[in-house]
Simulated scan of single mutants.
Amino acid sequence: MTDTVTVEGTEATGRTPVADIDVNRIMQMIPHRYPMLMIDRVIDILPDESCTGVKNVTINEPFFTGHFPSRPVMPGVLIVEAMAQTAAVLVVQTLGPDAEGKLVYFMSIDEARFRKPVTPGDQLHIHVKKVAQRKSVWKFSAEAKVNGVLCAEATYAAMILDEK
């Protein structure tokens, strides 16, 4: 007998959810490395649809030394980068091994809103949904939450390059 995982929407789409993806596998999938790797894990992946990235925010992050020494706050632009990296993992998981390690470039960032500061000790959950895809251009919407509270949101488009 095998265990089954039920994810909301699976019955309607027929897509099978993927198990958690750890940081070692993430580094095989996308080219980012410390200090620019902004996600530690990807969970709740539904290929070609959605996933959730997890960032464990620690005081050891290099940006906290200057942003801001008296009240450390994760820069909004890096939260958006975490959204993009989470989406890149979704793209690779959707396209398969041939997409691993390919570069993905932002094309647009729209409707970015920052609602609440993200600080050391927070665990950021980045919920990404695919909005559209046309050839190598993908569009996403994302929300970043800490303990279920919305901290940031954005829609953005990115292009995956054919060369590595």
Rank of each mutant, 00 (worst) to 15 (best):
V118I: 15
K129C: 06
V131I: 13
H127P: 03
H125A: 11
V104P: 00
E100P: 01
I126W: 00
A112M: 15
F106D: 08
A99T: 03
S136L: 06
K129G: 08
S108V: 09
D122L: 07
F106A: 06
K135Y: 00
G101R: 01
H127T: 07
P120M: 04
A99H: 04
T119V: 14
G101A: 03
D122H: 15
Q123S: 08
R113K: 13
V118K: 13
V137W: 07
W138V: 05
K116N: 11
F106Y: 12
W138C: 05
P117R: 14
A132K: 15
A132G: 04
F140R: 09
L103A: 10
R113Q: 11
T119L: 11
P97I: 08
K129S: 14
F106S: 05
R134V: 02
V104D: 00
E100T: 00
I109A: 08
G121N: 08
K129R: 15
L124P: 01
V104S: 01
R113I: 07
K129E: 14
D122C: 12
H125E: 14
A132F: 03
S108N: 13
D122A: 08
V128G: 02
K129Y: 09
R115C: 09
V104G: 04
I126Y: 00
P117S: 12
W138E: 07
G101W: 01
G121L: 05
E111D: 15
Q133E: 11
K139V: 12
K130D: 03
K102C: 11
W138N: 11
V118F: 15
R115M: 10
T119Q: 15
Q133P: 02
K139Y: 03
K135G: 00
P97C: 03
P120I: 02
Y105I: 08
G121K: 09
V137R: 12
D122R: 14
M107H: 04
A99I: 04
K135C: 00
R134A: 01
P97L: 05
Q123T: 14
S108M: 06
K139R: 13
V128Q: 02
A112N: 14
G101H: 00
V118R: 14
I126S: 00
K102L: 15
K139P: 01
K129Q: 13
I126C: 06
G121V: 02
K116H: 11
F140P: 06
K130E: 12
K102E: 03
S108K: 11
D110Q: 09
A112I: 09
L103T: 09
G121E: 08
D98A: 15
G96E: 09
E111H: 15
V131F: 02
K139E: 10
F114D: 12
P120R: 10
Y105A: 13
M107R: 12
P117V: 10
Q133I: 01
V104T: 06
Y105K: 10
G96N: 05
S136G: 01
R134E: 07
W138P: 06
E100L: 02
F114A: 14
P97N: 09
V128L: 05
D110P: 03
L103N: 11
V118A: 13
K116V: 00
G101P: 04
V128K: 03
R113H: 13
D122Y: 14
Y105S: 10
I126A: 01
Y105W: 10
R113M: 10
S108R: 10
Q133F: 01
H127V: 11
E111F: 02
Q123R: 10
L103K: 08
D98S: 08
V118E: 14
E100C: 07
Q123V: 12
D122G: 09
W138Q: 05
